[in-house]
Simulated assay, not measured.
Amino acid sequence: MSEACDVVHRLVAAINDHDLDAVLRCYSPTAAAVGPQGVADGSEEIGFYHTHIWEGFPDLRLIVWETVQFGDLVMLESTVTGTNTGLFILPGGDVADRTGKSISVRYCWVFTVESAEIVAQRVYYDQLEMYAQLGARLVLDDPPSQGSA
């Protein structure tokens, strides 16, 4: 296994253990993590992101299906599972209340690794799939008026 894959697999293990110190040891101090909830720049914000996710989903687990490396990029295909028993920040900054519902959502993670540290992380997942599992509804800000085409 390459050094880049090794650090990403250590990150997955630390996330599954909910071990914040081990998570942060996988990132460069100036790393950036980007996902639907926004951008986390640096160790403090990345730490907040992981802590927040664990508070919203205290039994959160990642199941890795595939790992692919190309140069300094490592990509994971995974499933994230957990039960929403805490507050959760939605894209746009709204906070969802605890639902007690479980999720099982497919995720794609793309990491850039330099000198055995993650310097960038991008997370992609079907937000509608996750929110539907949590019982959320899609509501349009400005629904079309009656009789509109």
Rank of each mutant, 00 (worst) to 15 (best):
A31M: 05
E114L: 09
W109A: 00
L24Q: 10
P91V: 12
V110W: 02
A14S: 11
I103W: 01
T30Y: 00
P29F: 10
L76D: 15
T85D: 02
A13Y: 02
L24P: 10
S115Q: 13
Y125G: 00
S78F: 06
R61G: 03
N84T: 05
V80F: 02
F111G: 00
G92T: 13
C26A: 12
H18F: 07
I103T: 09
D17F: 03
A40P: 06
G93T: 08
S28L: 01
R106G: 08
A116S: 11
S104T: 04
G56W: 01
V105F: 02
E77T: 11
A4P: 08
H52L: 10
L73R: 15
A96C: 04
C26L: 00
I89V: 11
D21T: 13
E114W: 03
G47Q: 04
A40V: 06
T112Y: 00
A13H: 07
D97G: 10
G71I: 03
V95T: 15
V74N: 09
A116I: 00
F57G: 04
E3F: 05
G100P: 03
D97K: 11
V68Q: 13
G93V: 11
T112R: 14
E129L: 07
M1N: 13
W109E: 02
W65Q: 15
G47S: 06
G100L: 04
E77Y: 12
F70W: 01
D72E: 15
A22F: 05
D59Y: 06
V23I: 15
S104R: 12
F48V: 12
A116T: 08
S115A: 14
R25M: 02
S78T: 14
Q37H: 02
L73P: 00
S104E: 12
G86Y: 07
S104N: 13
D59V: 11
P91Y: 10
L24N: 07
V95N: 02
D6W: 05
N16S: 06
T30I: 04
W54A: 07
P36R: 13
E129A: 15
A22Y: 03
C5L: 11
G56R: 02
E55R: 15
I15Y: 02
D41M: 09
H18N: 12
I15S: 01
A22N: 12
C108E: 02
P36C: 06
D94P: 01
A120T: 07
I63W: 03
V119P: 01
P58F: 08
G42D: 05
F88Y: 14
L90N: 11
A32I: 10
T81H: 04
Y125P: 00
A13G: 09
A13T: 13
S28P: 03
E3L: 11
G35H: 11
S115M: 05
N84M: 06
I118F: 04
S104C: 07
V80L: 08
L73F: 12
F70C: 07
P58V: 10
G93Y: 11
R106D: 12
E129M: 09
V68M: 11
V23C: 07
D6P: 00
G92V: 14
A13E: 11
I118S: 00
I103G: 01
D126M: 07
R122N: 08
K101F: 09
V80W: 01
V80N: 03
L62E: 09
V105H: 04
V7K: 01
R122H: 12
S2E: 07
A33S: 14
A32V: 13
V80G: 04
V23P: 01
Y124H: 13
